[in-house]
Each structure stands twice: as structure tokens, then as C-alpha cells.
Amino acid sequence: MKRFLLYATLVVGAIIFLYPFVWMIAATLKPEPEIAGFHIIPRHLTFESYHFVFNKLPIIRGFVNSLFVSMIVTASVIIFGSMTGYALSRLRFRGRATVYNVALLTMMVPAQLTIIPLYTMIVGFGWVNSYLALIVPAMMSSYSSLLFRQFFLSIPQSLVEAAKLDGCSDWRILFSIFYPLSKPVITTVAILTFMGIWNDVLWPLMVIRDEQLMTMPLLVTLFAVGGGADARLGVQLAAATLLALPVIIAYIFLQRNLIESMASSGMKN
């Protein structure tokens, strides 16, 4: 009996978290009057909502924009973050302690404080409505640098010494010896950075106004807020589904990695 209750609770929980998504995807395939109902299988299957979205929104372009921006930023955060992490953990140079402390300190600066001045700066650079505004400010992250430093500290120093005897430069040590050893931390940094950029709306909302340059979440947000969907439920849900689908697919394959990375980010904050 107790076992049964336990499973019942867990299953009810799972339904609460999963059913809305299933319902959402189903609703996008129903005609408008059918949406207000609990059933999942559409009585009349229609792709009308998707037609509408694809006609109204450059959604493919948005997807490509999102992918492009997220990938560049992720690559940059990994490369520069690992360089910084390597220097902070393995190299001796004047000011190292200062850089380390500054990195710790910048993590405590809330984004609310800098977002407006940062925006005015981007306007000053003439970067509004350009990929640069989306990419450049996010190219480095103190948090990721510190994650790399933390991880690199656990790699035996003797490995470095030996590589140096073989005439390896620090660059080669980092990229061809440390990288293969650092898969866990690279995965974590990649997932956190990618998800952060992929899902962000506030910053793109500020700096991008040209529909052709908009990221997918921004397109969908403005579509929902700006009434582009003509108050049609199915259309709004279709736009949301298109935005969710890549993440859901990635989640099915990378579920363990995603959960662990996101949980670890919580732990270390």
C-alpha cells in the first residue's frame, strides 16, 4: 500500500510536469475551437497553425541566428575560459592574484547594475542590430574561467613538467594535453553557456530590432507580446513549440549531462 502511494505520487508529479508540454504540442495540431479541451489526440488534424507561423515569422532564420550566436559564444567561452583558467592555475606571472580576485568579484556584480550602461555602450559602438551586440559581451565568463581553474588544479603538475621537458609550449600543453583530460568541465561549461545564451531574451530584446537578426526566443517573445498571432491560441503555441522542440530533442539525448551540469552550477554558485 505504501509502495503504491509512493508510485502514485511520483506518477502524478510526472504528469503535472509533462502533461502541459504534451498538451501544448497536441494543441498546435488542432483547429482553434478544439484547443480548449483536455484531450491530446486531435479530432481534426491540421497544420494550419504552423503554416501561419512559417508565413509570418522568419523562424528558420531565427533558429540559425540562435544557433550561430550560441555556438560562437560557447566556443569563445571555452577557449578563453580555459586559457584564463590555465594561466590562473598553472602559470606564474605578476598580477595573477589580482586577476583571480577580480574574477571572483565580478561574479558578485549583479547584471541589473551593468545592463543599462552596457546597453548605452553598445549603442555608442554602433552595434545595435548586429551579431556583435549578441556575441562580444558574452564572449568571456568569469564563472567559466574559475571552473576551468578549479578543474585544472586537479591535474597533476608532473604532467606539465614532463611536457615542458619535451619542449611543449604552454599553449600546446593546454590544448593538446589538458583538453582531452577536461571533458567533464568542458561539457559543463558548454552546456551552461549554450543554454544561457539560447534561452536569453532580455539582452536580445534590448539590442536587436531587425527581424532578420533576431534570435528564436526573441522572435517568439515579440510574436506573443506584439499580437502578431492575431490572438490565435494555436499559433502562439506553435511558435512556442518550435522554440521548445530543439531543446526537448537535445534533452532526450543529453538528459544526464544537462541535469548534472545545471545542478553543479547551482552547487558552486
Binding site: 511520483l10 508529479g13 510526472a14 510536469f17 509533462l18 502541459p20 508540454f21 498538451w23 501544448m24 494543441a27 484547443i35 480548449a36 483536455f38 543554454m195 539560447w198 534561452n199 531574451v201 526566443p217 517568439v220 517573445t221 506573443a224 491560441l233 502562439q236 503555441l237 511558435a239 512556442a240 513549440t241 522554440l243 521548445a244 531543446v247 526537448i248 534533452y251 538528459q255 544537462l258 541535469i259 545545471m262
Partner: peptide
């Protein structure tokens, strides 16, 4: 179970918002 509870965490906030806006709708919301 863990994966299903975690799913909303990875889905972008705007998707969740649009979805719940429909769930909360006065006339047609579930």
C-alpha cells in the same frame, strides 16, 4: 521521474510563459 521533473528547467522561459498564459486564460484555459 527525475528527468520529467527537470524538463521545465531546461525549456526556455518564454515557452513556459506562453504555455501557462494559455492554461490560465479566462475563457479557454485548462
Amino acid at each position: 521521474f527525475r528527468a520529467s521533473y527537470f524538463l521545465p528547467v531546461v525549456i526556455s522561459g518564454i515557452v513556459v510563459t506562453i504555455l501557462w498564459q494559455q492554461l490560465y486564460a479566462y475563457e479557454t484555459g485548462l
